[in-house]
C-alpha cells in the first residue's frame, strides 16, 4: 500500500494513489500484487507434478493439462480419478463441477470488461483462477479511473500462468530430487495474503454478515466433494449479505418514515 493510501482521510477506504496508469505500470502492478499468491501456489504446483507422475499420467499429459486446462484443484482431482481407472465422462463431468465457481467469478468481473474486445476476454477468461479473480476484483473496484485496469488483470494472470507451468515442469523433470514442499509452510502465504485482502474490505454490517455466513458455511459444508463446499459457502455468504442489506435499507427507510 502506498503512503498516500495510509494518509487517506477516510481510513478503510483504499484510495489507490497510483499516478502511473500506463499499460506497463498496470501490468507490473498486477504481477507484484499477485506474487504473494504465487508463492502460496508453488507447493501445489510442484505437488501436482508429483501426483501426476504417481498417478501414471505421462509427463506430456501432465504438462498439457497445466498448459491447456490451467485449473489447479481440478487437475489434482482428475489425476486421482485417472489413477483409480475412472471413465472419461466421469473425469470431465467432475472437472466441470470443480470449476463451476469460475462462472461466478466471470459474472462478477464481466461488468468491468464491457469495453474490452473479445480477444481480451478470451485470454483473461482462459487464465481465470481464484487468485487472479480476488486480486483483480480489488483493482477493478478501486475508485480511480485508470483506462488500463485490464493490463493489471493481464499481469496477474501472466505471473500465475507462468508459475504454474514452471512448477509442473520442475517436478516432472527433477522427479523426486525436489524435496516434498508440503511441509515448508508456504501454503500459509496464500492464507495470510487472503486475510490481508479480506479484513480492510469488511466496511459495512452486510459485508460482515456475509463473511460470517460464508465462514460458518465453509466449515459445515467442508465435507462436500469437488470444491462444492467453496461454491456453496460463497453462495451462502452472498445470500446472507443481501438479506442483511435489504433489512438495513428497510430499517433506514423506516426511520425516515418515522421522522
Amino acid at each position: 500500500m502506498t503512503k498516500q493510501a495510509v494518509l487517506s482521510p477516510q481510513p478503510g477506504v483504499q484510495t489507490v494513489a497510483r499516478h502511473d496508469t500506463s499499460r506497463s505500470a498496470e501490468f507490473w502492478a498486477g504481477v507484484r500484487a499477485t506474487i504473494p499468491l504465487v508463492v502460496g501456489a508453488i507447493p501445489f504446483g510442484i505437488i501436482f507434478g508429483a501426483v501426476a507422475v504417481s498417478s501414471g499420467l505421462g509427463a506430456g499429459t501432465a504438462a498439457a493439462m497445466s498448459a491447456f486446462v490451467f485449473a489447479g484443484s481440478s487437475q489434482f482431482i482428475a489425476a486421482g480419478l485417472y489413477a483409480s481407472g475412472a471413465g472419461l465422462m466421469i473425469i470431465i463431468l467432475t472437472t466441470f463441477i470443480v470449476n463451476l465457481r469460475h462462472s461466478l467469478y466471470s459474472v462478477s468481473l464481466a461488468p468491468y470488461m464491457r469495453h474490452l474486445p473479445h480477444r481480451w476476454l478470451l485470454i483473461l477468461g482462459f487464465t481465470l483462477t481464484d487468485e487472479t479473480f480476488l486480486v483483480v476484483s480489488q483493482r477493478y473496484t478501486a475508485p480511480d479511473a485508470s483506462p488500463n485496469k485490464h493490463w493489471f488483470h493481464f499481469g496477474s494472470a501472466a505471473i500465475m500462468y507462468t508459475n504454474w507451468q514452471l512448477c509442473t515442469w520442475i517436478r516432472i523433470l527433477a522427479g523426486s530430487a525436489v524435496a516434498n514442499p508440503e511441509n515448508w509452510g508456504l501454503d500459509f502465504a496464500l492464507v495470510v495474503t487472503f486475510i490481508g485482502m479480506l479484513m480492510p474490505g469488511i466496511r459495512s454490517r452486510p459485508i460482515l454478515v456475509s463473511v460470517l455466513a460464508a465462514g460458518i458455511a465453509s466449515l459445515v459444508l467442508a465435507g462436500l466433494p469437488n470444491r462444492l463446499g467453496l461454491l456453496a459457502a460463497t453462495l451462502a455468504g452472498v445470500v446472507f449479505g443481501l438479506i442483511a442489506e435489504i433489512l438495513k435499507n428497510r430499517h433506514i427507510a423506516g426511520n425516515r418514515a418515522d421522522a
Binding site: F194, S210, A217, A236, G237
Partner: peptide, 10 residues
Amino acid sequence: FIPPAVLTAI
C-alpha cells in the same frame, strides 16, 4: 459480496 465470501470460504 462474492469476493469477501470467496476469501472467507478459502
